[in-house]
Amino acid sequence: MARDVPHDSTRLVIPSTPLAVRQALCALFDTLMPGPITQPARDAAQIVLAEALNNIVEHAYAQSPGEIEVTVTFSATGLVCSITDAGLPMPDACLPPGDLAPLPQSGDLPEGGFGWHLIRALSQDLHYRREGGRNLLSFRIDAKQLLP
């Protein structure tokens, strides 16, 4: 099997706050990663990472804050992201389906429930497991995403 040699890898450890998530994304996408991927793929990567990290801040660490470790690796096939945290496990130990609620004709529009839908729509090879009291989430963003 051919090895998929990584071009570049970045690892960040951040506290579980919305501001730390913003700063990590800005660091990753503004400065650290001028990698060989298209702008639509960069946009997709930032959206998926943001949703995954926000989810950890809001749910896994809802009761007590903690650290989140993010590793982003460029490879020939795209951008591989791994995220680990020591917060609460996903309900039923699996990822939510991410189905969008039907849009009402008028009135009560949904203000949330978009996150897992975006993650599933924009990522490939999405995996989650619980191991040794930690959540491990990984996904890949195709480097050659078509223009939107």
């Binding site: 994304l25 946009d43 959206i47 949703e51 926000n54 529009l109 203000e111 949330g112 978009f114």
Partner: peptide, 20 residues
């Protein structure tokens, strides 16, 4: 240049606050 689902939710909330 960037919006996440929380930001999107906030835009939807503003729309709802403005009324039909």
């Amino acid at each position: 240049g960037f919006i996440d689902s929380s930001g999107l939710g906030a835009v939807v909330a503003v729309r709802k606050a403005l009324g039909p």
